[in-house]
């Protein structure tokens, strides 16, 4: 690519609108978030061993890390979440989804899309993600998908 194509034209624009002015970044520190994510993962393993999927989902979907610069915590959270999704029987999914709060439903939708967007993940857990996506859309509607797309606080 030619050098001029890499010029950041925004720096010459006085009215430039950076992401930071559009939406808040996660106020928490990256290392705190990582520790939290690890603690959650441990708690969730405990829940899953008891077969408490709804409780595990509740933990992973509450206060998820978001925004730039916290990729490690985000990835760990996604992995933990996918573990939960993988271990759930498909007949158990609808009642679990209905018990979630609207906030959690929206967050779960964001993770489902993130999972489907990652290269290679489609082969590993694509059908699981799609299965959850279908059931979640039945419960939370298209509005939930719209919110997952508009929300810039990326998980």
């Amino acid at each position: 690519m030619d050098a001029f194509r890499k010029i950041d034209i925004d720096q010459y624009d006085e009215d430039v609108l950076p992401d930071s002015e559009l939406f808040p970044t996660d106020p928490r520190d990256p290392s705190t978030l990582l520790t939290e994510a690890k603690q959650k993962a441990a708690a969730i393993r405990n829940n899953l061993s008891k077969g408490d999927v709804a409780g595990a989902l509740d933990i992973v979907l509450s206060d998820p890390p978001y925004g730039p610069g916290v990729d490690e915590a985000k990835n760990l959270t996604l992995q933990t979440l996918v573990t939960i999704l993988n271990t759930t029987k498909s007949t158990d999914i609808p009642p679990i989804l209905k018990s979630l709060s609207q906030d959690s439903q929206d967050t779960l939708m964001k993770y489902l899309y993130k999972g489907m967007a990652l290269p290679g993940w489609g082969d590993v857990s694509g059908s699981v993600l799609l299965g959850w996506h279908e059931k979640l859309t039945e419960v939370a509607g298209t509005g939930c998908i719209v919110r997952a797309m508009t929300d810039r606080r990326l998980v």
């Binding site: 298209t142 509005g143 939930c144 919110r147 508009t150």
Partner: peptide, 25 residues
């Protein structure tokens, strides 16, 4: 707004009531 919500603001409260729609915006 385009996140399929309608929000009602009481400035004196101050309180904001948000309704998340299951439908398109």
């Amino acid at each position: 707004s385009h996140d399929s919500t309608i929000n009602i603001v009481y400035p004196g409260g101050p309180a904001i009531h948000t309704i998340r729609m299951t439908t398109l915006p």
